[in-house]
Write a protein that binds this DNA or RNA. Sequence first.
DNA 1: TTTTCACTTTAGAACTATTATAAACTAGAA
DNA 2: TTCTAGTTTATAATAGTTCTAAAGTGAAAA
Lengths: 135, 135
Amino acid sequence: MKKIDIFNKLRTSGLRPTKQRVEIAKFLFEREKTFHFTVESLNKLLEKKTTSKFALATIYNTVHAFKNAGHLSELEVKGNKTYFDTNVSNHHHFYDSETSELIDIDEKEVVIQKIPKAPNGKKIKNIEVFINLKN
Amino acid sequence: MKKIDIFNKLRTSGLRPTKQRVEIAKFLFEREKTFHFTVESLNKLLEKKTTSKFALATIYNTVHAFKNAGHLSELEVKGNKTYFDTNVSNHHHFYDSETSELIDIDEKEVVIQKIPKAPNGKKIKNIEVFINLKN
DNA sequence: TTTTCACTTTAGAACTATTATAAACTAGAA
DNA sequence: TTCTAGTTTATAATAGTTCTAAAGTGAAAA
């Protein structure tokens, strides 16, 4: 993803392309594979991989802004840290609780034959499958 | 579940049946339907429904002891509170993110036709399906 | 029974993740 | 260049959870 695309991505989301947002966006979105992270891990990686300095609050702000704009999704993971995913399409996950490692599973890789119908007046928004792993 | 059963449940788990543990166990396990809760909600309910007083730390201790003994399972729910479930058998959930409400789905109600194989040397421990709801 | 002691409870401190605050800064329109 | 709303920043505040160490208690042994 080129710099101009990052700018557009931000602008079309109503986010002014500041130095910090551009740099974080480049780090998150200029990659082949999807990326799973917590704010803490992202902070450490940014410290290592960039020369800029980011206030922790900025990382929180930016991650939430990206999430609200639909560029990141939040994952359901046990424990009290919030995990994010650069893959915002419908998909599933392998989860290794021993290492806290998440691996994406393409939606097509999982076929569900039967599900119950939604309760009283509710509709199904989406289905998420977690395949928990052991050694 | 009778008092003697609660005592046995605790003792066979290596947990001395103290006043607090017995009362919390009765509250959690003497019910027909499964029960989903956070430590905070459990604390409030215990305040309301019992005459005893429990230190918050005791509730944390007890819930963790029950979880380690296999009498409670921990749920994957977005946000930073930990959810517990008195249903420890393999099963699935409806989840309404607007109300944070969870509803159990019996394992037999979900049939999966196809899943990918586990990565490099790992095995599949179990599969959890979340059906997210909207109005 | 009474004694004993490892296990448990308790209140409060400490810790971790996250959000709020308010002052300084900045992108970009005018 | 000036101006301003939006943004970043350091720090304080909050929320959920865990730690600590002193006091309390089940239950085994005397």
